[in-house]
Design a protein around this nucleic acid. Sequence first.
DNA 1: CTGAAAGCGCTTACAG
DNA 2: CTGAAAGCGCTTACAG
Lengths: 327, 327
Amino acid sequence: MAVTITDVARLAGVSHTTVSWVIHDDPRITDKTKEKVMKAIEELDYHPNYTARSLVKGKSNNIALVAPFFSSTFEMDVLKGIEDGMDESGYQYSVSMYSTRGEDAAVLNQIVRGRRADAVILLTIKPDQTIISQFKANGIPLILIEEEAEGCHVVRTNNIEGAYLAVTRLLETGKRRIALAVETENPGLSQSDRKEGYIRALKEKGIAFDRDLVVPINRFRFEEGQEVFPEILKKDADAVFCAAGDMIAMGMLLEARKLRIPVPEKLSVVGFDDSQMCELVYPSLSTVHQPLNEMGRKAWELATTLKKDSPPEKVVFEPRFIERDST
Amino acid sequence: MAVTITDVARLAGVSHTTVSWVIHDDPRITDKTKEKVMKAIEELDYHPNYTARSLVKGKSNNIALVAPFFSSTFEMDVLKGIEDGMDESGYQYSVSMYSTRGEDAAVLNQIVRGRRADAVILLTIKPDQTIISQFKANGIPLILIEEEAEGCHVVRTNNIEGAYLAVTRLLETGKRRIALAVETENPGLSQSDRKEGYIRALKEKGIAFDRDLVVPINRFRFEEGQEVFPEILKKDADAVFCAAGDMIAMGMLLEARKLRIPVPEKLSVVGFDDSQMCELVYPSLSTVHQPLNEMGRKAWELATTLKKDSPPEKVVFEPRFIERDST
DNA sequence: CTGAAAGCGCTTACAG
DNA sequence: CTGAAAGCGCTTACAG
């Protein structure tokens, strides 16, 4: 079967303790012993069992990544940054993925209880206080991406600013009836922030917020953008800012093309995220760039370097407006 | 600190062995004892430590997912199926992701050596025999998606058929000079199979394979589709079958639009995969549908049910041609 | 029907 | 400078 530390010790003619010292580069070991042990390790092709090591050290060397689901481009972009981080840290940690599919509390409970991770990165999930304190009690830091909660570390974009930039640009191009496609039922923090940025930009130009121009979004798939598109027309909007993201915006572009509504002449469309696809659709989609790669990377960094009792860190990235052909 | 099995035993007034029996629902335990223990478990909110359990059982309850990288839609679609599988199996297993970025052997070695997984799912990676035998020696099954290798389980699409369907359709629409965009340096199995299907379809119509119509692809990003597009024009092709996938096809569509080449009148474009975006681009992309969700799910099923010594299983899914506006 | 004991493969004070 | 021993939190034959 698999070779253990005892096998190495036997071959090298030392105790398994000594082998452990060698592996951990303890200064007490003489060069001669070290050499002997190293040779045995090589000869047997010994690799330590991670499970055993985890048990005695009380840490799993695993980072958990939790999201409502992993099948959208948003998650992929964040994942990319995490991959970069892993690569640099030499794969000392593994990453496990958990998609909650709405069952946030249950999944998070499993993780703390089974002590399955040394740190947890949450994508667009806001855990409740009971859960947060459980993690705290176990010394497992929580890193929130695109959300905030007391006692948690935070990595996010300045969504207010992002929305402000986009809507301001629409106003500059002369648009006045700007619809807002946004999550309205239990909106995540990023959604409500974007709404705030939208209102702020309007206010600055002396335009009052008209709640009739709000189009509620729930599922964030492009089909939903298509479905709600008639509402936009009915409201007689001359632009739509999709705070709900690029996919919704692309669904709208698709429907606009089918109904022969000229974009941007008759209707400007702006997304949020700057996913890769924005360049591929026709017309190409103007959007707000979020540095998702960097955010993922930063979250990884926090996850792997934070001490149990580090005070909550908060990292906010600045967005940019990317002008393409849909405005 | 965390509550252990001993704490439960103490509170319930039994030995920790008995607690373990209760957890595993051993028939020898009387209802009365069981009840007592259950109450203690509930009261202390006890959850077993997975690391300890793994160590004694010699299995990690973890499935490793290995791919060159995780940031493309192909991986996302497979991931979706895996998520479904996890969900159904009640999260008994965790999934860890490893992106190799070309270092296949090194990453796989880490996994076997550290005994970090009970089964490994490989996406478009073909491990060499040395590695395969190491996994075999450790009783860890390897499940290959879109590749094949001796002694490994296989989940794939009938790529020959997929390419055949696509090219046959192009021929039916009257196209004759059909370019083939395909990986040529160290092509993966799916790439060479698709080439074979392409050749077979041509042959059936009495058209000889013209190697001058092959466009080599390496990186699979849409920018590469744009870059190589001029070659297609130079070859005076009237269609292009992108065996290298939808992204390459979309890059070509984008470039065709810029150069005002009418698709499909002047040039038909066909992709492979049927990613979600195919409907969003203009013109919408005809492609070959691979049931990636089902494939991911099947791989998961194999990973979690296979015994150490199960003979290699091979599951082949049948593709469908999806006609949209680019043909 | 239940408990004492050994063991999974390591790490790390503690002796010598 | 190195080894014997205890322990991480479990599971599972083995006794009783």
